[in-house]
Amino acid sequence: RTMADALSDAGDLSGGEGSQDDVMTPAELIARLEEAWLNEKFSPELLESKSELVECVMEQLTHMEENLQRVRKGDLKASVHHMEIGRIRYVLSSYLRSRLQKIEKFFPHVLEKEKSRADGDPSFLSPEEFAFAKEYLANTEVYLKAVALRHMPPNLQSIDMLKAIPEPCLDSFVFLRVKERQEKILVEPETDEQREYVVDLEEGSQHLMRYRTIAPLVANGAVQLI
């Protein structure tokens, strides 16, 4: 097998996102990852986990890296592939890292949301993130007990993490670009003197508004946070 054959196989892999088995090209896969990255970076709360997407991208990267091992060093083509891999890896780790940061910041709420999730609803955490969040909660509790709580009077020795840790502020403002036209999005007034009103979000237009109003549109992909 020549390197060209080996590398062109990368084009045949498909990745299924969600329950419907839509076939995505690797290029679409990378585009989806970049969208998820920016959405996660800018949304105040932890978004739905995209474990399948992450797995598919990882698969692409491993496959490409395996092929590249058979190529001699200094090959121009290989160096271009290495650069591309570096860029994709950057997006992937930045995406996962911003999720971990949110998990560390909101762990009790993230776990609570996961607990109250109905069977069949998409999970907000990948299995690894779920394990991380649980361990983070346990460690925080142990730590607080060891350094402070056990020295407190008995009636003050318990702590409710859900109350102690701030919730994500869904009223934060965000910047967004519209991917699919939306009609009659309610804008709540900022002050008592103002009235609520509705706006239409034209495809391709950009807006500044509160996250709470458009959170469902981020989840279903109709708008992109920027």
Binding site: Q194, Q206, H207, L208, M209, R210
Partner: peptide, 20 residues
Amino acid sequence: RFVGQQEAHARLDNLTLMEI
């Protein structure tokens, strides 16, 4: 102006990501 008038929504077409 946006902050001063306590607006809740602004349209920002033609602004680039670097500007935002």
